[in-house]
Design a protein around this nucleic acid. Structure first.
Lengths: 230, 230
DNA sequence: GCGATTATTATGTCTATACATAATAACGCG
DNA sequence: CGCGTTATTATGTATAGACATAATAATCGC
């Protein structure tokens, strides 16, 4: 059953077809790389590339010696691009606006201190982001000045903190969480909404090694959707 | 400057270090694969593997002939695992409960018809998911019975529709969107909340080729967070 | 000087081979 | 029979060499 000249994307597509048609059903162990390589008339490395790619997406499970299986509960993964607000807006043809609310040094409250695992005085920067002049997102950010000294004199009055940090503060990893919460009085005023309005919230903390660089809570006005493909 | 015995993960780590320390600064074109292979004392394919992996994560940009660059605006991507409700709950040590609200055939409203690009009569299944006996998530689902005929007689009274579909209805791709919205009267009653409460909402449509299999809106009780690492 | 053709170059991919690694299966001993 | 040791096996990774492809740079004709 040998075919000729397969590329890894073709093998990937064929494997995907077999998974979708249940020719390879959930729970099944599929033929091993050597057998597939022979079937497709290619090198084992080419099959490996294709199957590894599918495994990266959660569509196959691979274990040494045990072989490659179609998972019973395919935990689908979605990769979503964390938006850089201004770019996202400009892509949608909207004018981006930015307003600094305040920028001061203070000791963070307990929840922020816990998130950053540090209790010292931090830069606290609040800002408002606008789309076509309308309030769009309220941002509440804490920056550890011992990790990013230059932040003390950064021009947050004229440019948004996220982009400044991207350009000046490297980070190694981070956590991000999505949730919904009602608007409190302060945020409602900022976003020009009734208190209690349902806001989409992104809460993110980024780290440079073992030290938190910044933690930010972004509250989006109603209507905001974060979307991607599966 | 040749080192010995590098694995692709070591090369990846070293490249990451250089990006983070700005030894390779945003906008820079980094040395080409052949040069790096010589520096690290390994084959070009090994360097390729490492750089390709970083590019997959958006930390490098690669173009034939032009070379590999550190992007000016690194669009960080987060991969998040789409939760299978029951498993997520069991992982957190909570008892999972399920209750069917209704299961009937009817013509979908315009917004649903638009999402599925079909206007015929569909199965409309509403259900409530519980954590330790407390209402946790309200699910509103439409299934196209011409795509999944068996759904007409599926036991949605005893088992949740999501898991049944995963086991019986293959899909090729889908869209997923996250947003926040206030609880309307019906959902508020179901989740035992005050109307207007801020709900986290996941809206998902899955496709088998050109035909929509199902579209579902899941509304989570306050407190729900979807989180991942960057 | 301009536009179209050709050369060059860096990444992309494939091959064949080899060895590493992890997990399971088989074996053998008490 | 049970337990620890030893094979076996499928995936994981590395290599050198080759050719493909895309994009830029250089060249040539006008």
């Amino acid at each position: 059953m040998s075919r000729t000249a397969s590329t890894w994307t073709e093998i990937r597509a064929e494997a995907l077809r077999r998974i979708n048609t249940r020719e390879w059903a959930p729970g099944d162990t599929i033929p091993n790389e050597a057998e597939l390589a022979e079937e497709f008339g290619c090198a084992r490395a080419t099959v490996n590339r294709a199957l590894r790619d599918l495994a990266d997406e959660g569509l196959l499970e691979r274990r040494r010696k045990a072989g490659t299986r179609v998972p019973l509960h395919p935990v689908r993964r979605a990769t979503l691009r964390i938006p850089v607000i201004r770019r996202e807006m400009e892509d949608h043809g909207k004018a981006y606006g930015y307003r600094l609310i305040f920028n001061r040094a203070e000791v963070p409250p307990d929840d922020v201190a816990a998130r950053m695992r540090a209790r010292r005085s931090m830069l606290h920067v609040a800002s408002l982001h606008l789309a076509d002049g309308m309030p769009f997102m309220a941002e509440d950010r804490w920056i550890d000045p011992t990790v990013v000294p230059a932040a003390r004199t950064a021009p947050f009055a004229t440019g948004n903190a996220n982009e400044w940090l991207l350009a000046h503060a490297p980070y190694t990893h981070g956590e991000i969480a999505f949730s919904a919460e009602p608007a409190d009085a302060a945020v409602a005023t900022l976003l020009d909404l009734a208190p209690g309005a349902a806001l989409f919230v992104i809460c993110r903390t980024t780290w440079d090694g073992a030290r938190a660089v910044t933690t930010v809570t972004q509250r989006f006005a109603p209507g905001y959707r974060l979307q991607t493909t599966l």
